[in-house]
Structure formats: C-alpha cells, structure tokens
Design a protein around this nucleic acid. Sequence first.
DNA 1: ACACACATGTAATTGGTTACATGATTTC
DNA 2: GAAATCATGTAACCAATTACATGTGTGT
Lengths: 193, 193
Amino acid sequence: MKYNTTAYAILGILAIHPHQSGYEIRRTIQQTVGFFWGESYGQLYPTLRRLAAEALITEEPSSSTGARKRRAWSITPAGRCLLTEWLAQPYHNDPPRDEFLMKLFFGIEAAPTVSVAHLHRFEQTNRELLATLVELERLARAHNSGLPGFPFWMLTLSYGLAQIRANLAWSKSALATLHAINPGEESISHSAN
Amino acid sequence: MKYNTTAYAILGILAIHPHQSGYEIRRTIQQTVGFFWGESYGQLYPTLRRLAAEALITEEPSSSTGARKRRAWSITPAGRCLLTEWLAQPYHNDPPRDEFLMKLFFGIEAAPTVSVAHLHRFEQTNRELLATLVELERLARAHNSGLPGFPFWMLTLSYGLAQIRANLAWSKSALATLHAINPGEESISHSAN
DNA sequence: ACACACATGTAATTGGTTACATGATTTC
DNA sequence: GAAATCATGTAACCAATTACATGTGTGT
C-alpha cells in the first residue's frame, strides 16, 4: 500500500491530539502547521475513509446519529507504527514553483510600478504572517510547553520566523534597489495588487 | 483562453533569450531560475505546441529535417503582450507543503536520531545550493551585467541567498537544540538519509 | 563502434483544488 | 426562526510528474 502525504499528516495530527473530526483535523492543521502545510476537504475526507478501511484510524462511538453527524477519529497502534516508519524515511519536497519570484525575475518586461507592487504585497503578507506566528508562539508557550512534542513544534516555528525575517529584510533592500533604478515613483498604488 | 504558469515561464524565457528549442528552454530555466522554478518535458512540449497554435510563439526555420530534429522557437509580439499582461496581475502561490518541516514537527513520534538525520540532510542540501548560487552570481555578473533584466535577476538571486543563509543559521541552532534534548548521540549515521 | 549529450514527444498516473450539495447544532 | 458555524461528502477538473519510446549529432 502507498499513501499520500495527506494520510501521514492525518496520522500525525491524530497522534498528538486524538478524537478529532475531519473538520477539526483540518482546523488543527491550519492553526499549528498552516504556515507550511495545507489540506483541502476534497483530499481529507477520502483519505480519512481509506485510513479507516485499513484500520490505521478508528471511529470513536458517537451519541448523535444522522447523515451529517460528527464523526471523531483516533489513531490505532498500526497507524502509529506506520507514521513512525514514514518519519524515518528521507523527506521529499518537490521542486518549488514560486510565482512571485518568477514575476520579479521577468520584471523588466513589465511597467516599472508592477514589480514594486508585487514587492509591497509580499512585504505585507510577510508582516501579517509574522504577527500570526508571534501569536502562535505565545499561545503554544502558554498552553503546550509541557507536552513532549513541544520542542519540535518550536523548531518549526523558529524556522518560520527566521524565514519571514529574512523575507522582510530582503524585501526592504529590494524595494530600495528598484527605487534607485526608477526614482520618483513613490506615490504609486498599492491597490494594483 | 487560460494558460498555466508553464506557458508564461516559456514566454518569459523566450522574451529574454529567443531562438531556443524545448530542450534548451528547459536547461535555461534550470540554470537561471532553477532554485525556485522547475519544468518537466511532459508539461513543456505540449505547452509549446499550444503556444505555437495560438501564435504566441513561432517556429524558426531550420536547416535539418527528420522526425526528431531541433525546433527553435521565438516569442511573437502577441506573446510578449500576453506576458506583460500576466506580469501585472497579482501573483498567486499555492499554499506550501513542506515535508521536511512536517517530519520535523512530528519528530517526537520517531527515534531521536531521525530528526537529526533530516536536519543534516537539510543542511547539506542548503550548503550545496549556496555554492551553486554563489557560482551563478559570479557567472551572471561576468556575462549578463549589461543586460536590461540584470537587476531583476540579481533580486531573485539575493532572495535565494538570503533564504539559504537563514536556513543554514537556523539548522545549526536546531541541531544544537536537539543535541541538548538528547545528548550523547553525536556519532550517528548521516547514511540513514 | 560506442557513448554521450542533444532532442522531441506521449501515455498513464497522481496529487491536489474548487465548487457544489447537503445537513446538524448553536446562538441570538 | 434566522444566521453562523460546525460538519460531511462528492464530482469535475487540472497541473504536473514519471516513465517510456524514439531519434540525431558529435567526439573519441
């Protein structure tokens, strides 16, 4: 059997926090690893079914009934075993495709304001993400600092923070460079982006 | 008509360096924007055909004949116009899925050496990439510094260098953290990864 | 003659998003 | 009883990779 990464994401999330519904799993993913991982329902629910069919997760008994009732899941020993196995395999990231950098690379083919607008949006996005991660760190320290996984969570968080700070420092200098190339355009729209 | 990003990548590459074959376009992409963009033949050749059918690129006449002869392409005015239009649109990056960070996040579920091994590989990959980008910068400064797109190319390059340096600084401290949590395991295999 | 780099292309598969359809529960 | 949020699921679509099949030109 071969599983996609979504399967392991589900197993991992249920390993550190069991008894969650598909909806909750997705929200947990967004709130904890959302800055480097995303899942859609279209991927999540079918994978959940498959994991259940292979007894890697089990459905918890529920009081309510009905077609669209909440269904809570937990990881089984077999699921935990598979997760551990997967973790030990070398990671594999597919080659990045960064449209922002692509548009910047071809910047000379566009009007001078275009690249500046992209950079402003990049800067803004990173500022917002920085605030999110700082808040996430505060919450994690307050509520999860005793849990065994905590040091690893902090590692990914500090990675995110380091990236964002590098991004912000770079975008500042990049904007300065563009301004030097094309002076006197400072009052141009942020609204284009 | 809607085009995928591959189409714009091709248009952009042909805009700055015309008269290239599919094979050459791919190699150019690898050598210039390879650290943030990749293209496979399975995507490249069909897109090339489509762009030609819509007169956004044209085939240059060729001396040789045969089933597998070299076919060189150049961008048309219509293609350049479309590229410029696309550049002005807000960029869109789909949510990242970083398996390395995912495995690190779930690190507590694995043997202590596992995360250390992942980090070593991460460090090694980044060291190699750093060397590649430093060399790329040297070559670009030597051969392309007079070209109009040069400042934009340097912008993406300095982005890449900033990322890599942040990665290396972070991975060093991350390894120190893991070592503090789990001392006395320093002689463990790199070979696991 | 052989190897290697150059070169074109397709078929099968996968991994994933988006949009849609629907229902349950809570809160005002 | 309306609105918001919680909740499950499917169908259509798409972008992209991988593996494969094949051929050409150059240098040793």
